[in-house]
């Protein structure tokens, strides 16, 4: 059996984090979910700084755009600029449907952009589809050191 994949959710809204966990609970991929509430924390975890010295590098980052301290685009840029980090797929998961947010995200190297659906069932479907696509369909790179 494959090792359970690790997902890092970067979102300042605990309600959304909880919805994502809700959506993935009981899925066959058994994703392990970790979450942080702002961009600075996200970078600390990914770079294993401070209290995150023993943190596991995630297999997938689900990144909100509107974040305190360091916004989602800055986190995205930092991930894609890091030689160790850039291989990690980043899914932008934001309420925003602004064209400039979408374009900017892809320009900065986002692996895909999904707008958070307003309807609960659509939301669940979106999250489950993200999980299924990246962990059930795609060939991921071996996990970094």
């Amino acid at each position: 059996m494959k090792a359970a994949p690790d997902v890092l959710i970067v979102d300042d809204n605990p309600a959304d984090v909880s919805l994502v966990c809700e959506a993935l609970s009981g899925s066959k991929h058994r994703s392990r979910i970790n979450s942080v509430g702002d961009g600075v924390e996200a970078m600390a975890l990914l770079n294993r700084r401070d209290k995150y010295v023993n943190a596991i590098r995630p297999d997938l980052v689900i990144l909100d755009l509107n974040l305190p301290k360091k916004d989602g685009l800055a986190v995205l840029a930092a991930i894609k600029a890091g030689p160790d980090l850039r291989r990690i797929p980043v899914v932008i998961f934001s309420t925003s449907q602004l064209r400039q947010d979408i374009v900017r995200s892809y320009e900065l190297g986002a692996n895909c952009y999904v707008a958070k659906p307003g309807n609960l069932n659509d939301f669940f479907f979106a999250v489950k589809s993200i999980e299924e696509f990246w962990f059930g369909f795609v060939n991921l790179p071996p996990r970094g050191k």
Binding site: N13, A15, D16, L19, E22, N66, T95, S96, L98, K116, G118, N119, L120, N121, F123
Partner: peptide
């Protein structure tokens, strides 16, 4: 309208979750 969407989405999602 853009900024209203986010909190509203929470209300919608969680009332639906409650209902289900």
């Amino acid at each position: 309208s853009h900024d209203l969407q986010e909190p509203l989405r929470m209300v919608t999602a969680y009332t639906q979750l409650l209902a289900e």
